[in-house]
């Protein structure tokens, strides 16, 4: 994960959860990962969450809304959850991956609740590119692949701007050659 522009290059040695006795869903192939800078976006999100959660529980604790120890326990829980999310954020970002296979786009994400989605290129209805404020500051974009099924939910975050555009063009041209109507 040292190379920040990792999105375009593939890392063959995908060590993510592939020990021989794993019970994880592991699908082979060369997974491309999103930019390491995306960890920054995640961390900002976690920090915001932490500020809100800890602030709210602190207010409850200081105004003695609950019985005496309960308020402070809530604050403690909020702090612990925020810290865990901080620690896990890099791993969560590393779990996001995608593959452009011959006929379909493969997308995975999640540690605890892992998900792998395969979308044949021909099912594409449209592609969105979104940039949030933090991501824009870091030069990142988010690519959303929309099919006729709302549940597909393929959203690749943390792509460097140029990569997002070229990936979109590649996907559109792939979809064009393998088009199927609805």
């Amino acid at each position: 994960m040292s190379d920040p522009t990792n999105a375009a290059g593939a890392d063959a040695k995908d060590s993510f959860g592939s020990s021989p006795t794993t019970k994880r869903v592991v699908i082979g192939g060369e997974w491309r990962r999103v930019s390491a800078k995306y960890i920054g976006v995640e961390l900002v999100g976690v920090a915001l969450f932490g500020v809100v959660a800890i602030g709210a529980t602190l207010v409850f604790a200081l105004t003695k809304w609950f019985a005496e120890p309960l308020g402070w326990i809530a604050v403690g829980v909020a702090v612990v959850v925020t810290l865990v999310m901080f620690v896990v954020a890099p791993r969560r970002v590393r779990s996001i991956g995608y593959q452009l296979r011959d006929d379909d786009l493969l997308f995975r994400r999640g540690i605890m609740f892992h998900r792998v989605v395969s979308v044949p290129y021909g099912r594409m209805q449209l592609i969105d590119i979104n940039r949030g404020p933090v991501a824009r500051f870091l030069g990142l974009a988010e690519l959303r692949f929309v099919t006729a099924a709302a549940a597909t939910g393929v959203t690749i975050p943390g792509l460097p701007d140029a990569d997002a555009d070229s990936l979109r063009d590649a996907l559109v041209s792939l979809a064009e050659t393998r088009r199927a109507g609805l």
């Binding site: 994880r24 699908i27 998900r115 979308v119 099912r123 099924a149 709302a150």
Partner: peptide, 28 residues
């Protein structure tokens, strides 16, 4: 020909049991 995408999901309980769930996404 009508499958929009195929999804495989695994939560912690399913992982402990070496299981997973399979979803075929179609229009709503």
């Amino acid at each position: 020909a009508r499958i929009q995408s195929i999804r495989i999901e695994q939560g912690p309980l399913a992982r402990a049991l070496d299981l997973c769930s399979l979803t075929l996404d179609t229009v709503a």
